[in-house]
Write a protein that binds this DNA or RNA. Structure first.
Lengths: 215, 215
DNA sequence: ATGTTGTCAACTGTCGACAGTTGGCAGTTC
DNA sequence: GAACTGCCAACTGTCGACAGTTGACAACAT
């Protein structure tokens, strides 16, 4: 009934470290010292090593033999290649969502879009939270667990390049329009259009990210 | 110059275990005993645990808390979901290959296709080796490292469901025709057709796999 | 015979300590 | 002063041992 009320130490360490890496508390380029972090978390090096390896498998850390684990900072080429992967996955998800969505899915998608707009007009911070929520809702509608899992991992790596999270109103506005158009295509069951719109949307996001990388 | 002439014990254990899992030496459904395997490999439990976690992150093992690691055996739904992911990735790769391929890529693709046919007529075993080689060559032509990496992982998981590797001549013949048509589309730089052919090809392979799952 | 409870062996989760490697720094030479 | 060499501290890679949990078996009650 109560599956694992308390996770293993390694699992807890994964959660804590992931949060610290994604929020930038451990900045890109810096190293993760095993003994230091283990003491700070109050655990031994064994579980911490497992946590580090796990995050490395998610792409949130890069391992260098005999040197340790580093938080990766991305080059423009990395960003482009990463978005090629993301585009492949999310376009497929959009197509599947268009053909499999239920009425409940549509309600949820509309809700997230409406929440985004009200949040935007209220000037709330962290608008990307709702952006992630939209893509997550779309993935639920696609009902393809393996694709969903991979998208989750890719989105994490994108968040790691938080440089583009600066609130850029024109970009936010365009994104919300993209989202609305995506929902309409999914509502119509038009897989081809859903894929096309998603591709354009991600292309825009990628470009925005690249420009903010160059300052 | 000689980067790591001898890998870490964990790295070696990963290679050995992956081979054993993929060849079925450790059959699906069976458990991996940490102390037993560690002794057999002549290493300690620490490095072996890291190897097990690594393979789990690749989808070749599933971890159950306090129970251990198991070799997963797939249900039809798993196969379908896995091929949805594979289709998303490889269709994108086919499109990219069509727009980025060089003359050298084309030569290599033709070579692999020719090798497949001669191998087929010679009645050699393990025809899937050359199938993997074809898809690998196509990925090289796509020049999208993240997509390539994910495809590699998915293909591994497909190999794990080796049930469909029974040499089925009609299926092999159809696959080789698909490959040839794919190369033509890539040669023409026709991304849309490359994607379409790849989708049909993988759909056929998935169907073949599902039928051989039901015996 | 069936269901329940107590016990136990086997295994995973975790820890602290030792060994091997790496990068940097001081000392030396030209 | 610059380049090279040898040493050293810090850190990762690895190991063996202990603690906690799980599933199964046996004994018992119904």
């Amino acid at each position: 009934m109560t599956p694992p009320l308390h996770l293993s130490l390694a699992g807890q360490a994964v959660d804590v470290l992931r949060e610290q890496v994604l929020t930038g508390e451990i900045p890109p380029g810096s190293r993760v010292n095993e003994v230091e972090v283990a003491q700070k978390l109050g655990i031994s090096r064994g579980p911490l090593r497992e946590a580090i390896r796990h995050l490395a498998s998610e792409g949130l850390l890069t391992l260098v033999p005999h040197r340790g684990a580093f938080v990766p900072d991305a080059s423009p080429d990395d960003v482009r290649a990463l978005f090629e992967l993301r585009t492949a996955l999310e376009c497929a998800a959009a197509e599947l969502a268009a053909s499999r969505r239920t009425d409940v899915d549509l309600v949820r998608l509309h809700e997230v879009c409406a929440a985004s707009r009200s949040n935007y007009h209220a000037g709330q911070p962290f608008p990307y939270r709702l952006d992630l929520a939209f893509h997550q809702t779309l993935l639920d509608a696609a009902r393809s667990p393996y694709i969903a899992e991979q998208v989750r991992l890719v989105q994490q790596r994108v968040v790691l390049l938080r440089s583009a999270l600066e609130d850029d109103p024109p970009h936010q506005h365009a994104s919300m329009d993209d989202h609305d158009e995506l929902v309409r295509a999914i509502e119509d069951g038009d897989a081809a259009r859903a894929s096309t719109v998603m591709r354009r949307h991600l292309s825009r996001v990628c470009a925005q990210m690249l420009t903010s990388l160059n300052h």
